[in-house]
């Protein structure tokens, strides 16, 4: 109980399910802004959870802060995925999305990092959440986004010699002949 009162005093809401009274959706983004400044983040539009869009340059300090800050404590990385916004009206083609959860505060949070097509790189967060290992491999396999610093960045679903990134929107559903011309 003492912890909760402290959170309220700091402007961070009590534990609660997202969208419920007490979850205080703006608290997390406010806390991030207080640490990294207004320019570093902007609000996202994820449905049902709090969301923020950040820059990829300082990803590791950003994620480490989300994990270690006592008022945020996002100790569980639920998922890493990516979005190909090729046909959407977005300046940057890809976005890597991290779904976070805090056991301590029972709160979900979503971080979206734009990644340009010409330079599809982003830092690996395996050093922050070891569970990111296979999740990042899947994003690499499906979208061709390279996670720098990943300990074992190989394809995880498709065969090792598969030449394409099948979840990219410009990749045809029936493939480019791989299903008829594979070697074994």
């Amino acid at each position: 109980m003492e912890n909760q009162e402290e959170h309220q005093a700091e402007g961070v809401g009590r534990p609660g399910r997202p969208g419920r009274p007490g979850s205080n959706p703006e608290a997390v983004t406010a806390r991030i802004r207080a640490r990294f400044g207004d320019a570093s983040v902007r609000d996202g539009n994820a449905v049902g959870c709090e969301s923020v869009i950040a820059e990829r340059d300082a990803l590791l300090p950003f994620m480490t802060f989300l994990r270690d800050d006592p008022e945020l404590t996002f100790d569980y990385l639920a998922d890493v995925t990516a979005v190909d916004r090729l046909k959407l009206d977005e300046a940057v083609r890809f976005a890597v999305v991290y779904q976070l959860y805090s056991y301590k505060h029972n709160r979900r949070f979503s971080v979206s990092i734009p990644v340009p097509e010409a330079d599809p790189r982003i830092q690996s967060v395996v050093s922050v959440w070891p569970g990111a290992n296979w999740l990042e491999r899947e994003v690499y396999d499906m979208y061709g986004i390279v996670f720098e610093g990943h300990p074992d960045l190989r394809r995880i679903l498709m065969p090792d010699d598969f030449g394409s990134y099948p979840l990219r929107k410009d990749y045809p559903l029936h493939g480019k002949g791989e299903r008829d011309n594979f070697v074994f």
């Binding site: 498709m158 394409s164 045809p172 559903l173 029936h174 493939g175 480019k176 791989e178 299903r179 008829d180």
Partner: peptide, 12 residues
């Protein structure tokens, strides 16, 4: 599953 990854009949 008429998709990129699935063999369209094992009799191939």
């Amino acid at each position: 599953f008429n998709t990129y990854t699935l063999v369209q009949g094992v009799d191939q």
